[in-house]
Simulated scan of single mutants.
Amino acid sequence: MTHLKVDRRGYPVIATVDRSPKEVDFGAISERRKLALAAFDWCAVCGMPFADELRWQMVLQHGPLPSSAISGEAPVHEVCALYAAQVCPYLFSPRSRLGDEGRKGTVRDPVVRFAGFESTSAVHAFESQLQPGIYTLHFEHRGQADEFSYRTPDEIRGRFADALEREKDLPVTDPEGELIRLFNRLDEGGEVAGAALAAGAAFAKDIFKVQGFGPYRDKSYPVVAGLLLKGTEQEIRDFSSDARDEAFSAVGPWVLERDGQFPAPLQRWRARGQSMVRRPTPSPPQGPGRNVAKNAPCPCGSGRKARRCHPSGVAS
């Protein structure tokens, strides 16, 4: 947690919550930040990448768990779930109540249950059944492989200590490290959500209907996403070097270094974009009958006359 910014009281500001330079709202989950977590495959607590490990979710059901599940919250590392149980007021005490307006007074279940899944297979934008017109992101997980539960954090202190003992620094490349740095700032983090759209999330179904994405409803993000999907390596590098937005400058190199190996949700969105994006039409050839006289030197540089060398023209 040492890389996280802290609020005025000194608490680490976890990845998924709303924030501003003046205020951090630990009770408000940001859909824009959830999109970045989904696209770049980051933990909802520490905001760092997942390696080959289970993705953990708090579950509310009792009895045997299904092999797959869908949740409105982004997944976390096991050690981050155990950490949250020690410090989050709602997860800490059986008498805790939620304080946000939508769920005010909701009491925590006597037993808190977390499940670990092998993969996050997809992320969907679903309309709320309680609030028509409001869309939120939901994470689909597959391969339930482990779980733990507790009434008070004392019951899992040993597991937390073991997880801390096993914890290792995660390797992070320079482009991803820059995205994480920007994402961790104490502001809306919207520009990293924009980078997630550019990486391919702009092709997700109903993504621009999701709460908080109104400012992104124009053609620029699908156009940039198309470039990062079908552009050449040089085109992507040129875009990144010319971008004024810091996150846009980092996301191009991130896409290139992945070399097609993307997190499953982002890979699904990019696959959907394949049928939505067309490569730009090449410039018309230069040559006789176009804009080069037939007896002029050929534009290819051979020194021969254009009508003899490239009578059909030379593509620019």
Rank of each mutant, 00 (worst) to 15 (best):
A163V: 03
D245I: 10
R142F: 07
A199F: 07
S316M: 11
Y221V: 13
A39S: 14
L130G: 09
V112H: 02
P222V: 14
G116M: 12
F262S: 07
A36Y: 03
V111T: 13
S121D: 15
S119C: 10
D25V: 00
F26I: 03
S275I: 05
R237C: 07
G231S: 06
G301T: 05
A250L: 14
A315H: 09
N184D: 12
A38D: 10
W269E: 15
H62I: 08
A306M: 04
P153Y: 05
A243P: 08
A193G: 15
P21C: 05
P49V: 04
V6L: 08
V277P: 06
G72M: 09
M58R: 14
D7V: 00
F248I: 11
E53Q: 04
S302E: 02
E78A: 08
R95Q: 15
G158I: 02
A250Q: 15
G226P: 07
L197E: 12
C300L: 03
P12W: 09
E23M: 10
V24Y: 04
G231Y: 02
G133R: 01
E176P: 00
S67V: 08
V111Q: 13
R113N: 10
Q234D: 13
A306T: 00
E31Y: 05
H62M: 07
S275F: 06
A39P: 14
V123N: 02
L60M: 12
C298R: 00
I70T: 13
S67I: 04
G273P: 13
L4K: 03
S283N: 09
D218E: 13
R55T: 10
S68L: 01
F40S: 07
E73H: 06
L186C: 06
E188N: 12
S20D: 12
T136A: 09
F50Q: 15
K209T: 09
T152N: 09
C43V: 02
A84K: 04
V112Y: 02
L4W: 04
R307E: 11
C298W: 01
